[in-house]
């Protein structure tokens, strides 16, 4: 049974995990920018039908890793396999089965929301009538129907994220990659996105997303990987990674607290101005 209000459209076919095997496999993935190792050899395995979170501090390598996994940034080494398709050996087939919401959601802002979704679908080679039908259904589910004719330039951050999610889903991918999908999003939009993702993976599709919001990851993810300084420092089911603590605490313990520098703020909160 789906979550009320976020029923996926009928064209979103049920996907049963193929033998329960991994949908996303990453091996020895590396990327350097000059002397800096942005990603220093990461390995990941995400099972089909999993909603997986990739968490880490700023500059840990989350966006770089997701960009390489989605064929948008050429890695220095390593292998990425999505549903049995090597992203860099067979990019045409691999890109066809994935949907992506980049971190900084920049849409074609002179298109309306409806035009944007239709464009994304038609770029994917979907028939015109089908893409229009899917766009209408997605706009409805994403609560953007009333704003379908507004220019994306006038959308709020939450509306942009939802429109980007619609673009990523319109060709019915089996793996979805989202970079900070809820950053800057209001609670109502965040709830719509969260429920849609939960419903999406229940049909056997796989989601990997990066986030800073530990509560969200803890709440919705069945698999978590913590990345720091370009390396995976913990990976497994959410329960395994947090080890009886909150995910926030487990994260801080693994990554290490940052210096606070609060010693010099003795005046703060005192009666003198």
């Amino acid at each position: 049974m789906g979550v009320p209000g976020t029923e996926l459209p009928r064209w979103h076919a049920e996907r049963k995990p193929a033998g329960g095997g991994p949908a996303i496999v990453v091996r020895a993935l590396r990327k350097s920018f000059g002397p800096k190792d942005a990603v220093a050899g990461i390995d990941l395995e995400i099972g089909a039908g999993s909603l997986a979170g990739l968490v880490g501090p700023n500059g840990a390598g989350k966006t770089t890793s997701l960009s390489m996994m989605t064929g948008l940034l050429r890695p220095d080494g390593g292998q990425i396999v999505i549903n049995g398709l090597d992203v860099w050996e067979d990019p045409v087939a691999a890109k066809a089965v994935m949907g992506v919401v980049p971190s900084e959601v920049r849409l074609f802002d002179r298109l309306s929301g409806a035009e944007m979704l239709e464009y994304a679908g038609r770029l994917r080679g979907l028939p015109t009538e089908e893409v229009r039908s899917r766009a209408t259904q997605l706009l409805d589910v994403l609560d953007l129907k009333a704003d379908a004719r507004r220019l994306v330039a006038d959308y709020s951050t939450g509306m942009r994220k939802k429109a980007a999610l619609g673009c990523a889903l319109i060709h019915n991918p089996s793996a979805l990659f989202l970079d900070e999908p809820l950053e800057g999003v209001d609670p109502i939009s965040a709830d719509v996105i969260r429920r849609l993702l939960t419903r999406y993976v229940s049909s056997g599709s796989t989601v990997l997303f990066s986030s800073h919001v530990m509560e969200l990851v803890e709440q919705v993810c069945d698999h978590v990987s913590i990345i720091d300084k370009g390396k995976i420092v913990a990976t497994g089911t959410t329960d395994q990674v947090r080890g009886g603590k909150t995910l926030q605490q487990a994260f801080v313990d693994l990554v290490g607290p940052r210096a606070t520098g609060e010693e010099g703020l003795s005046w703060l909160g005192s009666s003198s101005s």
Binding site: E118, R122, R132, A148, L151, A153
Partner: peptide, 9 residues
């Protein structure tokens, strides 16, 4: 905000 007349490309 600006509205467009048609929704279809």
């Amino acid at each position: 905000s600006s509205q467009v007349r048609n929704t279809a490309l």
